[in-house]
């Protein structure tokens, strides 16, 4: 309990409960079993993007991926276009992931090889990718996916959406284990905490970040597959606003924007908080404006809280041990 990061997780947990209570007070329909399934329906797509953003930020630099939503749109369009051209859907999905990886690799080359600041590089690719998504389709969605494909994002198993079971939860667990228990994970933290020290200790900082940007593209591809299954169509604007929302979730979850501090569990809680708020407001028929305002206030408030946590951490480190 004394550990500031654990305290932060409890704080987020409290926020989640508060959001749930707010939902119950706002709408009589909120406290029902069906709400859980309805709520979790929204979690995986935003959740995996938040996880990707968390990894990028953790590795420092400072790292950010503003093109993640646009990458998701383009990957989704690629899959749908290939499928309508006669490619088997599973193969098309694999190609979609490869498209995501390639788009992520463009970011990686700009940021890690050419040393362009990530904010500028991904802003530029955000323009290019989202523009391409609109221009190549003329703004209209590509539909006509088979019905069985809907099982992934519309099906339920034990009342919980299938994509929660097969995508979000496994990915979160894998990434958690990677960060907490593997060498790659400690390298990511090291690179984010002190790039130079990590480099001197033999961590290939920029190669590591290169990999993470590519991974971010692949995860955007996964998000695209889930959206495709959910809406049965690829929309050129599917990822609009996702870049900022995923940054919001990562930061709300306690990931430090300059890297080195953060946990997967925080990001998962943050996704649940944001989604609970969204669903509560939706059920209570409250204007979308309040939802935006709440996200904005949460975002700023959580960073202010974070700075306090960071200060305490630093004091703790400065204190001699034993």
């Amino acid at each position: 309990m004394k550990d500031p990061l654990t305290q932060r997780l409890w704080f987020l947990f409290g926020l989640l409960i508060a959001a749930g209570v707010a939902g119950t007070l706002l709408s009589e329909h909120f406290l029902k079993a069906s709400t859980v399934g309805f709520l979790l329906q929204y979690v995986p797509v935003l959740g995996v993007l938040g996880l990707a953003q968390t990894l990028i930020m953790l590795s420092g630099g400072p790292g950010i991926d503003l093109s993640i939503g646009a990458t998701m749109s383009l990957a989704g369009l690629a899959i749908a276009a290939l499928f309508t051209a006669g490619v088997p859907l599973v193969l098309a999905c694999v190609v979609g992931l490869a498209v995501g990886a390639a788009l992520g690799a463009v970011n990686a080359v700009l940021i890690c090889v050419l040393q362009v600041p990530s904010l500028m590089a991904t802003l530029a690719t955000f323009f290019a990718y989202s523009g391409l998504a609109l221009a190549l389709t003329g703004g209209s969605p590509i539909g006509g996916l088979p019905d069985w494909f809907a099982v992934l994002a519309q099906g339920r198993f034990l009342g919980i959406p299938v994509h929660m079971w097969v995508v979000f939860v496994p990915l979160a667990i894998v990434l958690h284990v990677m960060l907490a228990h593997t060498r790659v994970g400690s390298h990511i933290y090291a690179a984010g905490n002190d790039e130079r020290a990590a480099f001197l200790a033999g961590v290939k900082v920029w190669r590591l970040r290169f990999g993470l940007y590519v991974l971010s593209g692949v995860i955007a591809g996964i998000a695209a597959i889930m959206t495709l299954s959910w809406f049965q169509a690829a929309r050129p604007d599917a990822g609009d606003g996702m870049e900022l929302l995923s940054v919001t979730i990562a930061v709300l979850g306690g990931t430090h924007i300059f890297g080195g501090i953060g946990r997967i569990s925080g990001t998962v809680l943050a996704v649940l908080i944001v989604t609970t708020l969204q669903v509560a407001f939706q059920l209570a028929n409250i204007s979308q404006a309040w939802q935006l305002a709440a996200i904005g206030i949460l975002l700023i408030g959580s960073v202010v809280a974070d700075n306090a946590v960071g200060d305490r951490l630093r004091q703790r480190m400065a204190r001699p041990r034993g």
Binding site: S287, Q288, A289, L292, G296, L299, I300, V303
Partner: peptide
């Protein structure tokens, strides 16, 4: 005053200002 990085702070206020606009 709060040392929130400018990109995050203005991202947050962007949400708030758009909310004001909608309201």
């Amino acid at each position: 005053r709060t040392r929130v990085p400018p990109i995050v702070a203005t991202l947050g206020t962007m949400y708030i200002y758009i909310a004001v606009l909608f309201l």
